[in-house]
């Protein structure tokens, strides 16, 4: 991956997520307006924008946590059912998609009644039908990878926010996803814990994981993103390399937004 590569040149590698004219509303509130976005395998895409602009909704559509009404969305070779499809059953397709898509939430959402290792092992056991012993061995390796091997037996309530978020990342990785979604993974953390989570994400990006990240950490975005997407009132206004977006944004709105978030 080099910096000269054209930002939209995803044709050179296979596309894993493809959105074409995707529209989504909550009742009368139109959240996503004709969103077009292709994400290539191994690419790291960072989505930025003001709160309420629809960036979380956008990535929540990618694993079907939000339903979209019109347009075309394919993930990893599967067509994501629309709201109308899901009303008449399309849940099986959804499960196939979710098996290949990991998600990390702002509030971690670890299962509080399970130890860290069980949090990581439960989905492979229940969804992929792995043997508990094997799944736990894998879980332990993953916890080691995020630096929490010694905390494997602790419960979420006994871990700090940063540690919980790293367990959550390990939990997603346990399903061996082809793509990882991060929905403001550091926004609920105390400042001193942001670094440990970003380190794990940086490492993942280096290993070639496809990632779509919603974040307010602009320094991190500049560092790891292949492309940055600026979204405003449900519309993608600009897509470009970090250099394009951060240093010479073409849109007035992008400039205003960046000057507001970069000033402090």
């Amino acid at each position: 991956m080099n910096a000269i590569e054209l930002p939209t040149a995803t044709m050179s590698r296979s596309v894993i997520v493809s959105m074409a004219r995707v529209n989504k509303s909550f009742g009368t509130f139109h959240v996503l307006k004709d969103v077009d976005l292709d994400v290539g395998r191994g690419e790291v895409v960072v989505i930025i924008g003001a709160s309420g602009s629809g960036k979380s909704t956008l990535i929540r559509c990618v694993n079907g946590l939000e339903m979209y009404q019109s347009g075309r969305l394919t993930v990893d070779g599967f067509n994501m059912p629309t709201e109308a499809d899901r009303a008449i059953g399309g849940e099986k397709e959804l499960a196939s998609i979710r098996k290949g898509v990991g998600m990390v939430f702002q509030q971690f959402n670890l299962f509080p009644h399970m130890s860290a290792i069980d949090n990581v092992a439960i989905a492979p056991i229940r969804v992929r039908g792995r043997k508990p012993n094997e799944a736990k061995a894998t879980a332990l390796r993953l916890l080691e990878r995020v630096g929490l091997r010694d905390h494997a037996q602790k419960f979420p309530g006994q871990l700090s926010g940063g540690q919980q978020q790293r367990v959550a990342i390990a939990r997603s990785l346990a399903m061996e996803p082809h793509i990882m979604l991060f929905d403001e993974p550091t926004s609920a953390l105390d400042p001193e814990m942001v670094g440990e989570v970003l380190d794990v994400m940086r490492e993942l990006a280096r290993e070639g994981m496809t990632m779509i990240i919603v974040t307010h950490e602009m320094g991190f975005a500049r560092e790891v993103a292949d492309r940055v997407v600026y979204i405003d009132h449900g519309r993608i206004l600009e897509i470009g390399t970090p250099v394009d977006i951060f240093d010479c944004p073409t849109h007035e709105r992008t400039r205003t937004f960046l000057s507001r978030v970069l000033r402090h």
Partner: peptide, 20 residues
């Protein structure tokens, strides 16, 4: 969020209810 996390891990409705 618990249900969303479980669903995002591709758990079936049954597993989400019984285990989570």
């Amino acid at each position: 969020g618990q249900i969303e996390a479980a669903r995002s891990l591709a758990m079936s409705s049954w597993t989400v209810n019984v285990d989570i």
